[in-house]
Amino acid sequence: MAAAAEDVEFVDYDRDEEEEEDAMDEDDRGGGRGGRALPVPHIVSQGVMRSRGRLLGRSTSVLASNRDRFDSLADAGNPGHGPQRSIEGWILLVSGVKEDAEEDDLYNTFSDFGHVKDLHLNLGRRTGYAKGYALVEYESFEEAQTAIKAMNGTQLLTRTVYVDWAFSRGPIQKLTSTRPLHRRSRTPPRRLAALTC
């Protein structure tokens, strides 16, 4: 089992205060050096100007491991693009949901495009009102796609909602994102490369 190795890796929190102060001073001076401490090292944070927190440079995460196997539904040999099917159907994310929306509102609206197999309308823990998103499950790709086409950018309870696939078959392609690159023309090329690797 890997448990023993993890125990060793985890940070000892009984260190004295002074050591922590030192670590923080370093980060203040270093201006972006905190980025190096990320468990996922390829997130080169040259653009990070401000780093804060007692954990900087000290975190280790089991998630950073490339050795452990993480279960996935993806077709291993064929990552590609486009939506990823979930185990029992196709999941959509609805964003821009009004805070006083109720499950029935979502259910009724999205039932127009097929049988809604599952629906999560999560509430903000502080307010008790809808957090602003919903997750909707359809059995078939066609139902889900129809719902996206019909509902994306339309009004639901006087708010514009956006509807999109929740899961993808492969990584997000940064360079082909909708973001207009010319708006950030001062970005050094090396940083762009870092973001897309």
């Binding site: 993806a74 994310l93 602003g132 994102s177």
Partner: peptide, 19 residues
Amino acid sequence: MIRKEVFVSPSVLREARRI
């Protein structure tokens, strides 16, 4: 131990950022 991974769409990341 349960270990799962999946790629989410840009919309899901955007929602996480918004929160």
